[in-house]
Design a protein around this nucleic acid. Structure first.
Lengths: 141, 141
DNA sequence: TAAAACTAGTTGCAAAATGAAATTAGTTTA
DNA sequence: TAAACTAATTTCATTTTGCAACTAGTTTTA
């Protein structure tokens, strides 16, 4: 068991997401509909497979993602967000807004986020509900 | 110049805050009133001085923090949040809320954050305004 | 005014994390 | 049966981190 630097909530967040890759995995599952190892691996940022394996395992240990076998493809795993994972959405949106205002972001990404922001709490609730439903379909059995 | 992995807003955020320390520095300045190198160094998480030097420089380069000389103590620097830095507050609050709900947080920290959340947008606006005023006092001259 | 303490670093070095490429073992498709 | 797919694992070079000691200038204290 790794020891914690402190129990401050910001530090608690950092214990899980204080690296360059973990949050990109959440983004892929949450906003880009990716569910398989290789789908995530092929994202723009080109995460190495050893890092992806490591981070997915840590996310599973932390109860943020759950790994299930694909019934149709025995060697394929499906990675789904848990409630704890879905609850990261407000953080992701706040980050996106900050980057939109203060960092260089491409027009394509800008439009993508603007849509999400314009949809407001309504759209975000709808998206959360859909993700949560997916999780509940898995965990009931 | 370091190259960027992508222009995705989440990745843009990670280019600056994708490590275990940078956000703790922001927390110290934003919520704990710390303004000096050694005040930040003495926080619970015990950041090493070489890392602190490195991160403060990067935050200054990114326009998130501004460094000024203390008029009363020639060898002391004052670190202040810029507008870009103050605008991180919604992210910090969203992170704190998530940790409160899903991670182990001490009673003391819990009370601290609850107060901030109960204060609502009003309190957060007031805090942002105070930090921004500090920055404006420095940048006008 | 001399000594001690404070301030913001810098330096050196060992340990850990990262990243790229190659490899692997099982599964599915052609 | 061969080729392709899937989720890793392994190896190894590079980078980042963390700790401790040190430094140069400034301020306080006796």
């Amino acid at each position: 068991m790794k020891e914690l630097k402190s129990s401050c909530p910001i530090n608690q967040y950092l214990e899980v997401f204080g690296d360059k890759w973990t949050l990109l995995i959440i983004r892929d599952i949450m906003f880009d509909g990716k569910r398989y190892f290789n789908e995530i691996r092929e994202s723009d940022e080109k995460i190495a497979s050893n890092i992806l394996t490591d981070r997915l395992n840590k996310l599973e240990e932390s109860g943020i993602v759950i790994k299930t076998k694909d019934a149709k493809h025995k060697q394929k795993n499906i990675y789904t967000l848990t409630k704890t994972g879905v609850d990261l959405m407000p953080i992701m949106i706040a980050m996106s807004l900050w980057s939109l205002n203060h960092r260089k972001v491409s027009e394509k990404d800008r439009a993508h986020v603007s849509e999400l922001v314009k949809g407001g709490k309504d759209l975000q609730d709808k998206m959360s509900a859909a993700l949560l439903k997916e999780y509940e379909a898995i965990s009931e059995n």
